[in-house]
Design a protein around this nucleic acid. Structure first.
Lengths: 105, 105
DNA sequence: TGCTTACGTAAGTGTCAACTAACGAAATAG
DNA sequence: CTATTTCGTTAGTTGACACTTACGTAAGCA
């Protein structure tokens, strides 16, 4: 979940998500929307998004078509929703945060 | 907004937010919940959260009491909500993302 | 005035992330 | 088979970030 949040904290990656939200796009088509960085940079962003399950890759000849994996987005949204709305109730009891901390270490 | 998202992508900072969500806590009290890092590390996390408007600092004698600034959390939530839900509609028109990119460069 | 408490801040370190330039791989066209 | 297209990957650089150690500061107390 940490890496997923970090993936979305990067503005170019959010733009990529928006680009492939409604339709499939090939890597080169995506890269065209970012004139001031190289294809390589975009390819690496695509790798990050793919490894976090945010986008799906489909090969067609020499091209690779990307589209959003909405299931993963929904998961992230659910995580954040519970973060906002449950924080008050859950953490009135401090013990739970202690647990989180112990697990993290 | 970028720095705000990065602030939340850090797990210890999310824990801090949860800690001061329901009640004010002094810096030392917050640090107690993180036994495996120094006070200094927590202080720096508090600075990041404060500079992003996520938490509010109130001085009382030598102590500094922190609490969540819910307004900023609500802003972030609204931003993400519109990110999820509007992405399809907004970005069916590719021009808008182009605009985003040009502004970012 | 000193001493202590409760903090932040500065300096330095190791690690990771974003990027460019150069190369490699795989499918297709001729 | 060779050349081209469409991509990913590797190597190397730069900057950001989480962290520790050490020091600075401001309030309260003897």
């Amino acid at each position: 979940m940490d890496t997923l949040l970090k993936a979305i904290a990067e503005p170019k990656r959010r733009d990529i998500i928006r680009l492939v939200w409604a339709r499939e796009l090939a890597a080169a088509e995506i890269a065209e929307y970012f004139p001031d960085v190289t294809r390589s940079a975009i390819s690496q962003h695509l790798t990050v998004l793919r490894k976090n399950g945010v986008i799906h890759e489909r090969r067609e000849g020499t091209r690779r078509l990307y589209s959003v994996n909405r299931g993963e987005i929904i998961k992230l949204r659910a995580f954040l929703d519970s973060f906002w709305s449950d924080s008050l109730e859950r953490l009135r009891d401090i013990a739970e945060v202690s647990e989180l901390q112990k697990r993290a270490s």
